[in-house]
Computed example of a mutant assay.
Amino acid sequence: MHKNFSEETLRNFTKQVFTEMGCSEEHAELATDVLIQADLRGVDSHGVARLSGYYRLCCKGRINTTPNIRIIHETPTTATVDGDSGLGLVVAPFAMKIAIEKAKIYGSGWVSVKNSNHFGIAGYHSLMAVEEDMIGISMTNASPLVAPTYSNERMLGTNPMCYAFPAGNYPPVVVDMATATAANGKLEIAQRAKKQVPEGWIQDKLGNSTTDPDALKNGGSLLPLGSDKDHGSHKGFGLSATVDIFSAVLSGANYGPWVPPFVAFLDPPSDPVGEGIGHFVGAMRVDGFRPIDEFKQHLDNWILTFKNATTVNPNKKVVIPGEPEYLFTQERKQSGIPLVQPVVDDLNQLATTLKINGL
């Protein structure tokens, strides 16, 4: 069962939560926008359902709601940002703005980030560049829940990466994906719905395949994209490793098994190799390669060509990356954002704790 809430209702509620946590008006508004855009785009696992998680981390002193986000190393086209333990929802857009400004001058801009926290959906940050007729790239490492190929030890996060490209008459092409078989948030959705997950998503603590979404709580691990060694998991492992190195080894953040957990009841490792969680963002001017109008015209042609590809089932069309999220946004702006009852209950409990009006 779920209930629909208007975008305005959820924006007002979410902003109030962040304000009560101690965020400035500007930061509360930005953090709210990142979460609401996730819900609008149908990425329910990274929307307002995450609010209580951020609050609990704040209470544990692991999120600084008044961070001094700053550049600590810089060249004309690159920079490293120290997020000062701030909300990743605020730190990552700060970094992307720097990348965009550098790109405006030099053609491209690249920014690595350390000492941050969970940054929401990667697509939000990449799409900031698209708004400037640029190609946007964003990625982040995350809490270790994924076992590398041949292992049953949690060593990597779901480590999402996103590439976003501006189109002309069509929505942007947005390739936004976890480098694990599934994002942890999808397991949380299955747990709340009391449903099994598909074969190949997770393994138990002994390395046996299971469809029990609670296996992760009992010492199991997510699998890299590709599922197992016979279905290309080494490729998912390679992509996840790439994200970890760009996001953390490059910036000075924690990497691999040292990445702090998103949950407040687990303490970060006592022997950190860096500071906080790491991100990597980039922006490239399309007109650094060819005129923007030409690019958009040909990307439109690319989209149309793939959408018209012959399919095995004539009732189904090829889905362009980013298309489902665009359609979700159009629908949910009209009909509202659906929240399942456990999420509504959780948010109302948070409202009680903060002494604000609930949903």
Rank of each mutant, 00 (worst) to 15 (best):
H2P: 00
K3Y: 09
N4Y: 13
R11M: 08
Q16K: 13
E29R: 10
E29Y: 08
L30N: 02
A31H: 03
D39L: 00
S45R: 03
G47H: 01
G47Y: 00
V48L: 05
V48Y: 03
R50I: 03
S52Q: 12
L57K: 14
C58H: 12
G61S: 11
P67M: 03
P67E: 12
N68I: 12
I69G: 03
E74S: 10
T77Q: 13
D84F: 11
V91G: 10
K97M: 09
I98D: 05
I105H: 06
K114G: 01
S116M: 06
H118W: 04
F119P: 11
F119A: 05
Y124L: 02
S126W: 09
E132R: 10
D133F: 07
M134S: 11
I137E: 04
M139I: 10
P144M: 07
P148M: 02
T149A: 07
S151A: 08
M155L: 13
G157E: 03
T158I: 11
M161D: 03
A167C: 15
P172I: 15
T179I: 12
A182L: 08
E188G: 07
K195T: 12
V197N: 01
G200W: 05
W201K: 03
W201D: 06
Q203N: 09
L206V: 07
G207S: 05
G207K: 08
A215V: 07
A215L: 07
K217R: 12
K217W: 11
L225N: 02
S227Q: 13
D230A: 06
G236Y: 05
G238H: 07
S240G: 12
T242G: 10
D244L: 04
V249A: 15
L250C: 06
S251V: 08
N254Y: 04
W258F: 15
P260E: 06
V263Q: 15
D267T: 12
P269V: 14
E275R: 15
G276Q: 13
V281Q: 08
M284F: 15
V286W: 04
V286H: 01
P291R: 08
I292F: 10
K296I: 10
I303P: 07
L304C: 08
F306Q: 06
V312P: 01
K317N: 11
G322H: 04
Y326D: 01
Q334M: 05
L339R: 03
L339E: 05
Q341P: 00
V344T: 03
L350N: 00
I356N: 00
